Amino acid sequence: MARAYWLMKSEPDELSIHDLQRLKTARWDGVRNYQARNFMRSMQPGDLFFFYHSSCPEPGIAGIAQIDGEPYPDPTALDPKSHYHDPKASDEKNPWTARDVSFVEAFRSVLPLGTLKAQAGLEELPLVQKGSRLSVMPVTAEQWAIVVGLAHK
């Protein structure tokens, strides 16, 4: 089966590409949108994703990471101290998913959202679509190649 490509957003004060570089691997959790969760569940080990820094002074694609292992119930949904706690979730019925991810590459500089919006060939990338707020989204092989090319200029 062909490798799939994704984009996943994280606030860098929670988990940045540089944190992942230092840690080598981390748990990706806290996704509380059903469509984004379904994308996470459909990922395969070895799939690559753009690591997008969001809700920060310089939002943009900061690097590349990889999906490791299989999806599992997100433990933050059950933790009352967690910002991502879901009072409706239980051990028996936890609708939320977490994934383990590993570091691949940090770009020399963040590719800003404005650059991505202006780039020919990325018009259909969900990230640049008006009103798109998903934290996890698919990326086509063509879009992947364009963004990697921009990052390595």
Results as ranks from 00 to 15, higher is better:
Phe49Ser: 01
Ser82Lys: 08
Leu134Cys: 14
Leu134Val: 10
His83Gly: 13
Ser135Ile: 08
Ala145Gly: 12
Arg22Pro: 05
Phe50Val: 00
Tyr52Pro: 02
Phe50Asn: 01
Gly60Glu: 03
Phe50Arg: 03
Leu15Met: 14
Asn38Thr: 14
Tyr72Val: 01
Tyr84Glu: 08
Glu105Ala: 07
Pro75Gly: 11
Val101Ile: 15
Arg27Pro: 03
Met137Gln: 15
Asp86Ser: 02
Met40Lys: 07
Lys24Glu: 12
Glu123Lys: 12
Asp19His: 14
Val147Gln: 12
Pro73Asn: 07
Arg99Lys: 10
Val139Ala: 10
Cys56Tyr: 11
Gly63Leu: 00
Ala36Phe: 06
Tyr34Leu: 14
Tyr52Trp: 09
Ile67Asn: 06
Ile61Asn: 04
Val104Met: 02
Leu78Tyr: 11
Gln21His: 12
Val148Gly: 10
Glu70Ile: 01
Met8Lys: 07
Val110Cys: 12
Gly114Gln: 12
Met1Trp: 04
His18Met: 12
Ala141Trp: 02
Glu124Trp: 02
Glu11Arg: 02
Lys153Arg: 14
Leu134Ala: 15
Lys9Asp: 04
Met8Ala: 08
Glu11Ala: 06
Leu113Arg: 00
Met8Gln: 03
Met40Phe: 07
Gly46Asp: 04
Ile61Tyr: 06
Cys56Pro: 13
Gln21Pro: 09
Ala89Gln: 06
Val136Trp: 03
Gly121Ala: 00
Lys88Trp: 00
Lys93Ser: 15
Pro57Met: 06
Arg3Glu: 00
His53Trp: 04
Met137Thr: 09
Ala2Tyr: 06
Leu15Val: 13
Glu123Tyr: 04
Leu23Phe: 14
Glu14Ser: 13
Leu150Asp: 08
Leu127Gly: 05
Pro95Cys: 07
Tyr52Lys: 03
Asp47Pro: 03
Asp19Ser: 14
Gln35Thr: 15
Tyr34Arg: 12
Ser16Arg: 09
Ser10Trp: 02
Gln44Glu: 02
Ala77Glu: 13
Phe50Gln: 05
Val148Ala: 13
Val31Thr: 10
Ser54Leu: 01
Leu116Trp: 06
Leu78His: 12
Arg27Val: 13
Thr140Lys: 01
Pro12Leu: 04
Gly63Pro: 06
Glu70His: 11
Ser135Asn: 15
Ala151Asn: 03
Leu23Thr: 11
Val110Lys: 10
Met137Cys: 14
Ala89Ile: 00
Glu92Arg: 09
Ser102Thr: 03
Lys153Trp: 10
Glu58Gly: 13
Ala141Asp: 07
Gly149Tyr: 02
Val31Glu: 00
Trp6Pro: 04
Ile17Glu: 00
Ser90Pro: 10
Gly114Val: 13
Gly121Lys: 05
Met8Pro: 00
Ala65Arg: 03
Pro59Ala: 00
Val136Gly: 07
Gln66Gly: 09
Glu105Asp: 10
Phe50Pro: 02
Lys93His: 15
Pro138Glu: 15
Ala106Thr: 10
Trp6Arg: 06
Trp144Val: 07
Ile61Ala: 04
Val128Arg: 01
Asp74Trp: 02
Val148Tyr: 02
Lys88Cys: 04
Lys153His: 15
Asp100Gly: 07
Tyr72Lys: 13
Pro126Asp: 01
Pro45Phe: 00
Pro12Ala: 05
